[in-house]
């Protein structure tokens, strides 16, 4: 398990070299997208309309931040990850459409996303849930925000400039390996043992 620093836009090879368990810090650009923002971007794409930023050059962050406007400038106050599995229903289509190389979230994702990550050459990295104040320290600037009026603060696409954002733990790599699948088997075994203890 290595500690690796990466810059956006990510090099496909760097992403493919990442292994489950590696710790990553990233610098550069990311955009936030939760449920509504995923739907919005997919809808625009279907209508043949352009996305006003370049998702392929950024990390995708499952996050709905706390923000504050001071002197006409947005500031991120707290910005930890939201539960990623909610996005499982459309994340495969989203990845194939927008070619993001890194998803940052919490709690992991399932097989549809795992297959899409492999196809696109992307990884899923886990950021510590609830570590919103720590995340805000690594966010240097709000570059822009899209669909704020339409989607509201938590669901809008916030374009963030970050410096050594992390620690991010690779939990699904670009080759179909998932910490969650391996761990799931172990937990199942432990659970059977716990059941036996209860029945004693």
């Amino acid at each position: 398990m290595a500690t690796i620093k990466l810059n956006t836009p990510f090099d496909k090879k760097d992403i493919q070299n990442l292994k489950v368990g590696d710790t990553v810090y990233i610098s550069g650009k990311m955009f936030t997208a939760r449920d509504e923002c995923h739907l919005k971007m997919l809808e625009l794409h279907k209508e043949g309309k352009d996305i006003p930023f370049k998702p392929e050059d950024m990390a995708l962050f499952h996050c709905g931040p706390v923000v504050q406007k001071k002197n006409d400038e947005w500031r991120i106050v707290s910005a930890g990850p939201t539960t990623s599995i909610r996005m499982e229903i459309f994340e495969d289509e989203f990845l194939k459409t927008f070619k993001c190389r890194m998803i940052i979230g919490k709690g992991g994702m399932a097989d549809r996303t795992l297959k899409a990550l492999e196809e696109v050459g992307a990884v899923y990295v886990h950021y510590t849930g609830g570590a919103g104040a720590l995340a805000a320290m690594a966010i240097k600037k709000v570059e822009d925000v899209y669909w704020l009026d339409e989607l509201g603060i938590p669901e809008a696409a916030w374009i963030l400039d970050v410096c050594e954002f992390g620690p991010l733990t690779v939990t699904i790599d670009a080759h179909g390996n998932s910490l969650y699948n391996e761990l799931g088997k172990e937990i199942q075994k432990n659970l059977e043992k716990i059941h036996r203890e209860i029945e004693k």
Partner: peptide, 26 residues
């Protein structure tokens, strides 16, 4: 990785206490 998570949590608690930013965005 579990230690990395708890370390980030403890660091986050410290940052929140020092800066007055809510510890979690939720």
């Amino acid at each position: 990785p579990a230690r990395v998570q708890v370390e980030a949590i403890l660091e986050n608690i410290k940052v929140s206490r020092e800066t007055g930013a809510p510890m979690c965005q939720d």
